[in-house]
Write a protein that binds this DNA or RNA. Sequence first.
DNA 1: TACACAAATTGTGTATACAGCTATGGCAAA
DNA 2: TTTGCCATAGCTGTATACACAATTTGTGTA
Lengths: 258, 258
Amino acid sequence: MTSKARQGEDGGSQTVRALLRLREMILSGQLPAGERIAEPAVAEATGISRTPIRAALIRLQEEGLIEPIRSGGFRVRAFSAAEIRDAIEVRGVMEGLAARLAAERGVGRAALSVLQGCVREIDDLLASGELDEARFAAYVEANARFHDALAGASGSEVVQRQVVRANALPFASANGFVRVQAASADARRTLTIANAQHAAVIEAIAQREGGRAEALMREHARIAHRNLEHVLDNPAVIGLIPGGCLIQGPRDAAPVRK
Amino acid sequence: MTSKARQGEDGGSQTVRALLRLREMILSGQLPAGERIAEPAVAEATGISRTPIRAALIRLQEEGLIEPIRSGGFRVRAFSAAEIRDAIEVRGVMEGLAARLAAERGVGRAALSVLQGCVREIDDLLASGELDEARFAAYVEANARFHDALAGASGSEVVQRQVVRANALPFASANGFVRVQAASADARRTLTIANAQHAAVIEAIAQREGGRAEALMREHARIAHRNLEHVLDNPAVIGLIPGGCLIQGPRDAAPVRK
DNA sequence: TACACAAATTGTGTATACAGCTATGGCAAA
DNA sequence: TTTGCCATAGCTGTATACACAATTTGTGTA
């Protein structure tokens, strides 16, 4: 019972807790980019012993958020603008693959209507007035649901897995830059265009137009490219995006590592 | 000194040793697909304590070779023909991306000549006589070198990383089915075609034809599709491919799990 | 004041001990 | 003979201890 209660609270095992907690500490900048992650320190800060923390670190390395140090241990990665652009491109390619497979192999009526439901929700949201915090949260949620459903529509666990993986880096993910969009002036315009692409992909899938579906999802991901440029030009908004503290300023020399 | 000597022998830390050893045990069928991997048993068999073995298991899970069991621990994965096809498709897409980026961004003279060197080597190999064991090993090596160099030519560490990842599953990798090809009658023909594709990709990259480069690498990966079909039709050769024991027979019902 | 060297502290990698849980086999009862 | 339950054995997840390595700090000297 106790274990089940704890499971409900924060996700089961110490390892999972450590993973969530560490990710949070990295993305919030509590563990600064480029710096070694000292296991004993994290252990004390979280109240979790070193063993599960170690397991979480391995997973975070596979995820790409941290990198091994030659002399042992890990360090928080810093990402150049070019790397982020590439990560976004990879996501676009993977989601493009998912969309193409969905179109080529066909998807059931149910899956299609889930996708359509997301688009509808977002359309209603955009039509219903100002983009306040609540509506914005709803948008983020619906958008994530659309992208998840699309990965599932590929009909391939292998592909779905890779799509999830491509979304692992926070600033590469589908919702990575939306908070920046919200802050910008033409938020509604961009989101409207994005949702039109959602709708077009669904149409392409329904009509078995694989090439079109793929191209659309690739282009869709490139919205994030434009948002990234915006962030690089206005470093003030960098705090809005998750893991923003991991982004190396475009003019920063690589930090000297002793 | 002792530690450095051991490092030379089999790759450094106990964790690395455990990773290599476990992968070998899985791919050789020593740990049967579908069966739970008992850590104490592996620990005793390898002489490595449970801690590094555990670390290796986590890495193998991220790699996709093993999957977690609900009640704890891991089990060796079994792969259906459909999953293998999808994994090959994913590799094709990722290598296609690498080739496109190489073409779009341009590659240096040096990188280009590395690629050309591989193609030349393979051509010479194919022209030089019977495909004996030695020549065949040289082919495998040169082929791997080509694919590595191509991933590097993308100019993006992020992309390179994903390509490597897509090649992690042994039967999805570029050299996964070559031994099958060697056994088949028209080995020379297939390898000749494959190398023509290599050459064409280089040409496309040199001429900055991104779309062509991408399409070529996708098609190139599909050679593995044909080889897979061949294997499924001739289960006798399944022992030739690494990790063949992980392939579920096409007509096999899922093995009963008690 | 700067630099080199030594000592101490800190941290990783690994082994091991232990608690809780799962699964399996046997035993009893119907 | 079959079915249900209980006990036992084994395994996982976690904590902790320890050795070796690295880094940092402090000290002495040029």
